[in-house]
Each structure stands twice: as C-alpha cells, then as structure tokens.
Design a binder for these strands. Sequence first.
DNA 1: CCACGTTATGTTATTATATAACATTGGCAA
DNA 2: TTGCCAATGTTATATAATAACATAACGTGG
Lengths: 159, 159
Amino acid sequence: MSSSKHHDHKRCVTSALENAAAICSSRGLRLTPLRRQILELVWHSHRPLGAYSLMEMLAEHSGRKLVAPPTVYRTLDFLVEHGLIHRVHTLNAFVGCSHPAGPHSDVLFICRECQTASEVHSPQVYKAIHICAAEQQFKVVQQMLEVVGICAGCAARKP
Amino acid sequence: MSSSKHHDHKRCVTSALENAAAICSSRGLRLTPLRRQILELVWHSHRPLGAYSLMEMLAEHSGRKLVAPPTVYRTLDFLVEHGLIHRVHTLNAFVGCSHPAGPHSDVLFICRECQTASEVHSPQVYKAIHICAAEQQFKVVQQMLEVVGICAGCAARKP
DNA sequence: CCACGTTATGTTATTATATAACATTGGCAA
DNA sequence: TTGCCAATGTTATATAATAACATAACGTGG
Ligand SMILES: [Zn+2]
Ligand SMILES: [Zn+2]
Ligand SMILES: [Zn+2]
Ligand SMILES: [Zn+2]
C-alpha cells in the first residue's frame, strides 16, 4: 500500500472518498456502494491498477461475489467520466485523480521502477501544448499527458 | 489510404522506406523483407494501425501466409526500438515516425474523428515538460505525448 | 566449402484486456 | 402501485499481447 514517498496514505483515501461524495452530491450523481468500493480500491495506492486486479481485490476485500468484467468496466467508466479517476493508457490501468474538482489538464509522471503515478498540474505545459495545438489548428478534447521515467525515490535508491 | 490532408502520400512511404534503409545500414541493423513489409504497411496511411490489422494486411498484400501474432509483435518491437515507428498507447496501435533519425521528443495529435495522428516536434512543450519533471526530480526516460482531439480537416467538415 | 554460433522467423498455446447483448434488480416519482 | 430509468448481473465473445519452444537464415572463422 501507499507510494514510494512516505506519507499518511489513509488521508489520501479518506479525502478522495469525501471529495467524491461531495462531487456526486453536488452534481446529482449516485455514489453507489459498488462505485465507492471500486474508487476506494483504486486509491489503494498511488500505483495504477488494472481492471482485472480490481475485480479480484473487490472479491477479496468486500466479501462480494466476484463481479464480472462488464460491471467493473462500467463502474470505472463512470468514475473516469466524472473525473474521479484517470485511465492510464501506458499501463492499461486506472489511478485516482488527486484533484477531482479541477479542470484535468495535467501531466502524469509514471515511474517505471515502482509504478507510482503522480499527477502534476502545470500551467506551463498546458499552455505549451495548447499553443502547439493551435498552430496545427487542432482542437484539444482530452488531455492527460503520460510521461514515463524514474521517480526521485527510485533514483535515490538505485545510484 | 492517405490522411485527411491531401498530399502525395506515396512520397511519405518511399521516403520512410529510404530513411529506414539508411538508418539500418548506418547502424548495422537488418531491414529484412518482413520488417520492410510491415513498415510499409504501417505507413499505409497516417492512421495508427493495430497489430492484428497489420497481420491481416500482410497476408492480403504480400501473398505471404498469415503470420502469427508473435512474429508481428517482434517486428513491431524492432521498429519501435529503433525509432522507425511509434506505439500509440491511446489506440493500442502503431504509426510511422515522421523523422526517425531525430531525438523523438514529440507530441502526437490524434484526431478522434478520422484517427489521423500527426507528430509535431515542439521544443517549447519539450522544455515545459522537462522543467516540470525537474521540479519533481523525475527523470524522463521515454516521451511521446499523445493528445486527443479534432484535427483541422475534421473541424472544417463538421461545423 | 563446412561447421558453428547468432539472429530472425515460425508454431502452438495461453494470458490479458475489453466489449456486446440481453436479463434482472432497485430507487424513485407520477 | 405502477411504471420508468438507472444500475448491476450474466453469458459469451472480441481484441490485444506474450510465453515457450522449434526451425530457418545469415554470417564468420576454419
Ligand atoms: Zn497517498
Ligand atoms: Zn519509482
Ligand atoms: Zn503521407
Ligand atoms: Zn480528423
């Protein structure tokens, strides 16, 4: 559990669940038990998790009978659609969004050693991308830039 | 065949094949018939193609017997490894690299209407990403930023 | 030329990821 | 309550990727 950086990860989880509840409430969305459980599992750590891992974890942790893939994917789709989690294409996986209320124009730094994915909001990158897009007359619809490399923690451990 | 922008696509293909031959030659790599054929098929258009589509196209176009997935993936791995094509994670697909000799720090604009993927080299974006990474003490290993949206051509067609 | 090590390709089977199509349930409001 | 709609369940299948091992092609020293 938790990421490479030592921190009180329970706070991440409770905060994520509280945010989700608030957002769903304010938007008239239903944060059902299944959605809540899967969101909590996605937040198990800062490592993106695949749909099938989540399926298995759900069966183990919640006592619930093994749900089938469509159920998990539908729930993940819901969470992605409303910005509570992000899909990580590089890993075919999902990770919790660290600022679900915001505009979601971020860079996701993915460590190829420890798989930790950290989301960084960078107006500079955002601006540069949009300038570049404008030059191509390209209209950006969805933006989650995935950058693969080595995180600070892993770089320190492996000198 | 070809992309949304009208252009002499045959030139794209011949140029890509010539570049590949030169690069392989200079690096002591073997551009075997299979590799050459698959590279040519990837360059069939500017739309990224999946491995299985390439398999089928290979069987149709080259008269060759249907090759199995591992063969295609190995060949694609070779082409990716040496920068002749790019893997497009957003689409689980592959697209030809438009400047295979370069440093490959680019933005790939993917049109969700016509699937055309156009690679743009932007020092500004590159710089912004690396500044952002440096702030996180994150060491970038691999960078191909995929941005999904609507290309100029499709925007013009659908007002 | 041959024998040999290396690289490339072939083959079979399996794993991993994702969706289609339809059935059932549960909340909620007329 | 009845009836709708959203959510979840179920079954089957599509799509993407790899493991493990077999054979073929290439080049190099003898
Ligand atoms: Zn945390
Ligand atoms: Zn790491
Ligand atoms: Zn072209
Ligand atoms: Zn387009």
